[in-house]
């Protein structure tokens, strides 16, 4: 009957298990799939990520040279990162912060990648 009691008393004298979250933040593990980003200046705007995304949350527009992800529809699977031919997509370890309003992650390319100008110009 007092089986739990022993454990409970033992816990009084051991270190607390709680992570005091806002005061101490734990380092995220490496390779954790967090926020999705794009090194836009290296992007060739091929649209592979848009085609592969299971959630259809990425929009690549070649004419206005924009790459946009809807972080509120993204399912953080990392498929786009694997399929990117120039490896300019990456996922940061920290998670995306909550917000009161939906803000799209929209990136405009100013100057395309130096080498493969053909892909960016068209």
């Amino acid at each position: 009957m007092f089986d739990m009691t022993r454990t409970i008393i033992a816990n009084f004298f051991s270190k607390a298990h709680t992570r005091l979250y806002p005061l101490q933040t734990r380092e995220p593990f490496p390779n954790v799939r967090g926020n999705l980003f794009n090194n836009i200046e290296e992007c060739i705007l091929c649209g592979m990520c848009q085609k592969r995304c299971p959630s259809q949350c990425i929009t690549v527009d070649k004419e206005s040279q924009t790459w946009q992800v809807d972080p509120y529809a993204c399912v953080y699977c990392g498929v786009c990162v694997e399929h990117c031919p120039v490896h300019c997509l990456f996922m940061e370890s920290p998670y995306r912060k909550p917000a009161a309003e939906k803000v799209m992650n929209r990136l405009v390319q100013v100057q395309g990648p130096a080498k493969k100008t053909k892909g960016a110009a068209q």
Binding site: F29, V32, V75, Y76
Partner: peptide, 12 residues
């Protein structure tokens, strides 16, 4: 799960 697969619940 988080350290090896990259996500806590849905590990893809």
């Amino acid at each position: 799960m988080e350290a090896t697969a990259g996500n806590r619940v849905i590990i893809s």
